[in-house]
């Protein structure tokens, strides 16, 4: 056990850190892109009735297709059809973003629709323009409503990001599987990897949920501590 640890895990720590960095990049890029795409889809669905069906179809497709299927689809089909993305790293975060943006669009839509009508009408009555009403009145409240779901979605992205190893993006799991194939000693390193992910996702979800609860409390969305 100790001997395996010294032989297999320690010499490969730099490789693991490299992989962890790639994983982190993919997660951040994927989540930010998902936020943007989801936001656009939600706005289109609510404010552009002629294009509503497009936004609905987009988010339905993104949510209904399994992430693994989407990943290989983006990685192997998009380059041939659209000539983009040109490398698997891009394909990885694009697929993660695609999947999540469907959920985020749906969440944001319910958040925006949950803002009481009267608030919007009051803003119009005060002479605020539609853009300003959206930015200053509707979105801040919608954000408070959906903050916990967005946190959950980030955790989902982190968990799904392990799949990019399948399309040979050198993330943490890719490096680990390489090491497993090299030494044929899976126990220590695979267990370590599982623990690394748990050690990242658990505190992340606790921290962000705590943060969102604080923000919701601070801005009067909920009257007591949750």
């Amino acid at each position: 056990m100790i001997e395996n640890w010294n032989r297999i895990v320690w010499p490969n720590v730099p490789l693991l850190l490299q992989g962890l960095l790639v994983s982190a990049e993919i997660c951040v890029l994927g989540f930010v892109a998902a936020l943007i795409a989801g936001f656009v889809a939600a706005l289109v669905r609510i404010y552009l009735p002629p294009l509503r069906w497009l936004a609905v179809g987009y988010s339905e497709f993104c949510r209904a297709t399994p992430i693994f299927v989407q990943l290989v689809w983006v990685a192997y089909v998009w380059p041939e059809l659209f000539g983009w993305p040109r490398d698997f790293f891009t394909a990885g975060w694009v697929a993660l973003a695609l999947q999540s943006s469907g959920y985020i669009a749906e969440t944001l839509r319910t958040g925006i629709e949950a803002v009481a009508r009267g608030h919007r009408e009051a803003a119009y009555a005060l002479g605020m323009r539609p853009g300003a009403t959206l930015r200053r009145i509707v979105l801040p409240q919608a954000f408070l409503t959906v903050a916990p779901s967005l946190v959950n979605q980030l955790i989902v992205v982190v968990k799904s990001s392990t799949l990019v190893s399948v399309i040979a993006v050198p993330d943490l799991l890719y490096q680990v599987l390489g090491i497993v194939n090299k030494y044929y000693e899976p126990i220590e390193i695979l267990t370590l990897t599982a623990l690394i992910y748990v050690a990242v996702t658990t505190p992340l979800s606790l921290l962000l949920n705590g943060l969102s609860a604080r923000i919701r409390y601070r801005y009067g969305y909920v009257s007591g501590r949750e």
Partner: peptide, 17 residues
């Protein structure tokens, strides 16, 4: 909190060994 894929690989490789 464990990613499904990691759990899958872990269960497939570690307990048999």
């Amino acid at each position: 909190n464990t990613p499904e894929y990691i759990l899958l690989v872990w269960i497939h490789f570690v307990p048999p060994v």
